[in-house]
């Protein structure tokens, strides 16, 4: 049993389809009303059929009450770090501390280049992400003196103003899959946000990947529990017969999610679904049941 001691967070992952903008917002509102803690949207600015994720997050935050919002994950190559830091802090202020920052190094380089971004190798992507996290945290740190200076391999500034100051300490959750990125998550991140279907062995990858993050964290003098572990899963549905991961009765969902928490220390669940009734049942039925089961097992 692995346990990093975090409270559980339950989220959804909604497709930001531009054609159905109001449905997208409605799904977030429904998630909020169903007691779900977090709503996330993917960020692919070059994808013309998607809404822009930054404005969507702000719009959704204004229409909801309790739910937190985050990109899953923000596309660094097209979101310059100081711009991202300021938009993030602004929304955190407006929403009373309901913003968290999901962040990734980017993929689909042809598309990124086509709209003006620069192509990076995977190795360069890791360095750029590290630099970006340093700049973002520096912009948020309004107590520090002087402007932000950074002379890195990928970002340079000799005087960016600090601020605005976020309403709460915004967490940075990294979408990481490869060893170097996992290590960066351990040294610089507040959370690790992988999509389980994209892990080499699905959920079975957790022990190995967790260990890499833990090692890097410890080597950097941090506690492994400084990094929350997520799992993004596809929400199949609530059929009567168990068919697979998150595809079957409520009890099955409950056991599967609780299993991830208890076996692998996952404390953030993000369910991908665009179906209102799945969203509602997940929030109203599964979430309380998982909390209860995990609390009981944790003792």
């Amino acid at each position: 049993m692995t346990d990093y001691g975090h409270d559980l967070i339950f989220g959804t992952f909604v497709t930001p389809t531009a054609r159905n903008a109001s449905d997208v917002v409605d799904l977030a509102v429904l998630a909020d009303r169903s007691g779900i803690d977090l709503v996330t949207f993917q960020d692919h600015p070059y994808q013309s059929s998607f809404l822009d994720t930054s404005t969507l997050l702000a719009f959704v935050a204004a229409r909801t009450r309790n739910i937190r919002v985050a990109a899953n994950v923000a596309n660094l190559p097209l979101r310059p770090p100081a711009v991202l830091a300021r938009a993030s802090a602004s929304l955190d202020v407006l929403s009373g501390g309901r913003f968290e920052l999901g962040l990734g190094a980017g993929a689909f380089w042809n598309a990124i280049e086509a709209v003006g971004g620069r192509r990076l190798t995977p190795g360069q992507g890791v360095t750029a992400l590290r630099e970006a996290i340093e700049i973002i945290r520096a912009i948020w740190d309004t107590d520090a003196r002087g402007d932000v200076r950074h002379d890195g391999e990928f970002y340079r500034t000799d005087g960016a103003k600090r601020g605005p100051r976020p309403a709460h300490p915004i967490s940075i959750w990294v979408g990481a899959y490869k060893p170097k990125m996992l290590a960066l998550t351990g040294t610089h991140g507040d959370g690790w946000m992988p999509a389980i279907p994209n892990l080499p062995n699905g959920a079975a990858s957790y022990p190995d990947h967790n260990a890499r993050i833990d090692e890097a964290a410890v080597a950097a003098g941090r506690s492994p529990s400084a990094i929350r572990r997520f799992g993004v899963l596809i929400g199949g549905g609530f059929g009567g017969t168990p068919r697979g991961l998150l595809d079957g009765p409520v009890e099955m969902w409950t056991e599967q999610l609780a299993g991830l928490a208890l076996e692998h220390g996952v404390s953030g669940f993000v369910v991908a679904t665009d179906d209102p009734s799945t969203t509602q049942r997940y929030g109203l039925e599964v979430v309380p049941a998982v909390r209860e089961l995990v609390a009981r097992e944790r003792g």
Partner: peptide, 16 residues
């Protein structure tokens, strides 16, 4: 510059 990001505020205001 120096305050909240206008585009983010505009999106929030539109939502509110």
């Amino acid at each position: 510059q120096g305050g909240l990001d206008p585009l983010t505020v505009a999106a929030w205001v539109a939502g509110a």
